[in-house]
Design a protein around this nucleic acid. Structure first.
Lengths: 349, 349
DNA sequence: TTGTAGGCGTTATCAA
DNA sequence: TTGATAACGCCTACAA
């Protein structure tokens, strides 16, 4: 055979290797590719007979649709982007777990990208996500401008956790951080404390601001004046908590209780106090916020404000799935709840 | 104009909205799409003049190649899959951070998928990753069969951390867990302890086995017989550590030191001891393993074996990037190092 | 209800 | 060195 070959239509021989394509399924089922597609996506009514044949073929071949091709074809990629601040934090870890689990049940895969605590990082993260054709974006807190987020929701469903805002396909829900802050402070006040120090988070972030508001609110309700000397601003890290205690102590301000606005800082503060021979709770009562795993295993176990971070993740994911399916999104989060453990005690008179 | 129109080639008008395509760049630069592609990928030599023109066009249009399309076209997706056991653990958190940071520098994005501690989960995770057309896969420990991993490396570069194995495009490196376990135990022995309890991890995982080997090794070297009553097996979680202490105590076996084979279990054990009025280190010296952030902030700060988890991440990512570029992968990990803090002390005679 | 014919944005193969 | 022209695997009008 030396004659010039016609451009032989690549024989669809038994391609044992490599993924099975939709076309092969169609062939085996004796229908057209579009029919297979329609069955896969429920895009149109298909006769039961063909439906069965196709299902059988899918089983037989072990066909799994190629998300990349779907993404290109304008279809969905079955992936949703998630913007975190930093993936290594125990807080985000729990939230991401919730997101992953919930998304998985629907066949979606999360793509996590860190914003590294600054606006530009978040913007870049979102750009990355968009270029990857994610079907939607979940933003965990962050400080990007509301308008910017809203604009993105022209194109994609967006779920924002920890902020209240609105946009075309934008759903936001949050935890009542103010009330949580109030609860923590109130608990300390109830225990007889009046000199209550406070370690704030980065006030560029909404949740940090809210927690501080709660602190102020409880103080005000009890008629305790705010004392700037009792307040330091930090960054939600253990190291930040440790350093905050030093700063507080340098001021020579007396305090009998300390409310660190997240658990990580509380843990750091605990070490800081220990270094200065201050005992928790004997010398200083300590309250955290979040109720991460580490709070339960801190020594002493940390009194804190419970917010189910895992559930924040699952709820965010559920809301996203709702939107993706064209349903109205919703999210129900339990309210803040004080968990009293062993790091606080009544102030002896 | 009523004459039948020729299938008007969709006017590439100023498409202000949506991402710019390679084709638009080509048009603006006055070259063919292939040329642009070649410049982008360095696939072939291109005249400097066109190169400049294309670069200018890219700048002007703000063009960013579409990874999805690249993926479909058989090119690369610029994403690498990462299989973890559970994303929420502080251990994986640090490793993932390292991976993310390193990959980002090269324009790659990680896709994290959890195996949830069982083989089937890992298999599924990898399948997901493959169907997403990741360019490579990084496997953090896990228990999938070596052969299976090797087979995957026929198709893709694979980096396996924490196990020694080989395959076509397979690179593995690990931390010396045995030596780490030995160091920890030796430290306790040096402090005069001879009744040293041990909390093992899941022995289906290599690293857990190795750490235990190290424990045995140190014991043997010191002529201390192994006592099954001093050993419990657990699961690397805080809750597991807590429960292990109960089990240990129920046996009424005397011990003056405890080596928990990871920090999380050590933290849990610490609480368990506290619950039984056993003080660390006064009554029991405690050593952990990993040196996670939580070890530094434990109370008392935990003596542990340092392995730079973050670096494990960066090294794994670097090795992957090497393979992706066709270079020989390599990874250099610092050896285990004992970090003595305040949870251990010399046994008073 | 079903099939045909593009098209999604790139890369890869072939000619030129 | 360059440019057509096919894939890549799927979705979606449009037509039947």
């Amino acid at each position: 055979m030396n004659a010039p070959q016609p451009p032989a239509k690549k024989a669809p021989s038994h391609r044992a290797e490599g993924p099975v394509t939709l076309e092969q399924v169609a062939e085996l089922a004796g229908v057209s590719p579009s029919t297979v597609s329609r069955i896969l996506n429920g895009t149109a009514a298909v006769s039961q007979i063909k439906k069965d044949a196709v299902q059988a073929a899918i089983q037989a071949l072990g066909f799994r649709p190629n998300p990349v091709a779907r993404g290109l074809a304008g279809g969905r990629t079955l992936s949703v982007g998630v913007v975190t601040q930093i993936i290594s934090s125990p807080f985000y870890g729990e939230a991401l777990l919730g997101i992953e689990r919930e998304l998985e049940r629907a066949g979606y895969v999360p793509m996590f990208v860190s914003g590294n605590w600054h606006e530009d990082g978040e913007r870049k993260a979102i750009a990355t996500l968009l270029s990857r054709r994610v079907d939607g974006v979940i933003v965990l807190a962050g400080r990007m401008a509301d308008a910017e987020l809203a604009r993105i929701s022209d194109t994609l469903p967006v779920v924002v956790v920890g902020r209240q805002l609105s946009g075309p396909q934008l759903f936001s829900f949050g935890f009542d951080n103010r009330e949580g802050g109030r609860l923590a402070t109130q608990h300390l006040i109830d225990q007889g404390h009046r000199r209550i120090a406070f370690i704030a988070g980065d006030l560029l972030h909404d949740d940090a601001v809210e927690r501080q508001k709660g602190y102020f609110e409880a103080l005000a309700a009890a008629g305790i004046p705010q004392d700037p000397d009792l307040i330091v601003q930090s960054d939600y890290t253990e190291a930040g908590g440790l350093q905050s205690v030093s700063r507080l102590l340098e001021r020579n301000t007396h305090f009998t209780a300390l409310f660190a606005s997240n658990d990580q800082m509380a843990i750091g503060a605990c070490l800081g106090l220990h270094r200065c021979n201050l005992r928790v709770p004997d010398d200083v009562s300590l309250v955290g916020f979040d109720d991460l795993v580490l709070a339960r295993y801190a020594m002493p176990p940390l009194t804190t404000v419970r917010q189910s971070v895992y559930e924040i993740g699952t709820e965010a994911a559920k809301a996203m799935l709702d939107m993706l399916r064209g349903n109205a999104p919703q999210a129900a989060l339990p309210g803040p709840e004080l968990v009293v453990r062993e790091s606080t005690r009544r102030l002896p008179r």
